[in-house]
Every structure is written in structure tokens, then in C-alpha cells.
């Protein structure tokens, strides 16, 4: 089967999409990782993957949404991989027969951020203190302004799960701000 004209990838078209969208995509990556170098790596990996599979992009849909979906997938995969490595090292070290599988997202720890001095924004630290699924749902809803249905599509989960992650994520964030910045965000604090 010979690819039709529509199936032929167009590097120039991809480049123009990339130039128009990369700042927005980087913004999301930075909210998720908290580190500019990690965010740039994530964005680069996402665009390379998008380029390889550009023939699957439907031009009728926003390119940024497609990129968000690819980027969040890679981000989720990275987190799973890290959890898997940590879990297996815990397993190897666990001589008492007790292994904890609920591993927090240590890769995006607020401590690192403070040390590197890249973003000292209280909200960003609060976002990074959350577990990655809650953070992703809250960032997509509140920073990116997406509807639950769109978030469910990007996170490949049900609207009910998105609803619960946003509800619990915001609660976590408010608790964090209340604990770390008491009295500073009086309307937000619980």
C-alpha cells in the first residue's frame, strides 16, 4: 500500500506547529516537573515522539492538545518507571518481608527546587508536594483551564476519576499552603 498524499509526513508543517506551540507545551512540562532542565528534556522527548508519529495527527484537532496528550503520557511513563525502580530496590533491600509499594513522587521534590532557586512560587511548591496524578489533573484544570472531559481524554481515565483527583488535589494544595504559609493566603487556607 502506497501512502496517500494526506498520509505523507511534512517536516515543514511539523516545524511550524512546533514553533507555534512549544512555549505552551514547555509551560505545562515545567508545572509538572518543577525543573527547567527536566521540563526541556520532557518537551524535547514529546516533540520527537510527535514527529515520528506525525502521520497520526488529525489537523482538525488542536495541535497543542495532541502534544499535551503525548507529553503527559511520557511524564506518566517516567513516573511509573521511577516507581518501579524504587519498588524493586525496596524489594531487594526488604529483608523483613514488608515492602511499601505506595511510593511518593520524589523526583519532583520541593527541596530540589528551592536549592536550584528556579521557582520559589508557593503555588508551584504546593503543586510539587502533591502526588503526580493529582498534580496533573489540577494543572490541566486550573492552569490550562481544561474541561473534565478533555482532561479525562488526556489522562486516559474516566471523568469520575478526574473529578476525584481535582477535588482531592485542591484539598492537598490548600492544606500545603495553610501549613507552609499560614495566614498568607487567607481566603485559600482551610
Amino acid at each position: 500500500m502506497t501512502p496517500t498524499q494526506a498520509q505523507r509526513p511534512d517536516p515543514a508543517a511539523f516545524e511550524s506547529y512546533m514553533r507555534a506551540s512549544h512555549r505552551q507545551v514547555y509551560g505545562l512540562a515545567l508545572r509538572l516537573t518543577g525543573q527547567s532542565s527536566d521540563a526541556e528534556d520532557l518537551v524535547q522527548e514529546a516533540y520527537i515522539r510527535a514527529y515520528r508519529f506525525f502521520f497520526r495527527y488529525d489537523p482538525g484537532l488542536p495541535f497543542t492538545s495532541w502534544m499535551y496528550r503525548i507529553l503527559t503520557n511520557i511524564h506518566i511513563d517516567h513516573n511509573r518507571r521511577k516507581s518501579r525502580i524504587r519498588a524493586s530496590s525496596l524489594d531487594n533491600a526488604g529483608l523483613d518481608g514488608e515492602t511499601v509499594w505506595e511510593v511518593a513522587d520524589e523526583s519532583a521534590g520541593p527541596d530540589k527546587l528551592v536549592l536550584e532557586g528556579e521557582l520559589d512560587d508557593a503555588l508551584q511548591l504546593g503543586l510539587l508536594s502533591m502526588c503526580s496524578e493529582f498534580r496533573l489533573a489540577v494543572v490541566l484544570a486550573d492552569v490550562e483551564g481544561m474541561a473534565y472531559e478533555e482532561i479525562a481524554e488526556i489522562m486516559q481515565t474516566s471523568i469520575g476519576t478526574v473529578r476525584s483527583r481535582i477535588h482531592r488535589g485542591r484539598k492537598q494544595l490548600r492544606r500545603y499552603l495553610d501549613r507552609e504559609y499560614p495566614g498568607r493566603f487567607c481566603e485559600v487556607n482551610v
Binding site: 508545572r31 521540563a39 503555588l123 494543572v139 481566603e187 482551610v190
Partner: peptide
């Protein structure tokens, strides 16, 4: 409080890459 938190998150500055 919920709306205030949402507004604060929505008004976060869009960071620039290096």
C-alpha cells in the same frame, strides 16, 4: 476559597524556556 485557589492557579505566570 475554592474559587480563590482556582484564580491564583490560573494567574500563574507562563514560564519561558531557556
Amino acid at each position: 476559597r475554592e474559587q480563590e485557589l482556582k484564580n491564583m492557579l490560573a494567574s500563574m505566570k507562563v514560564p519561558e524556556p531557556s
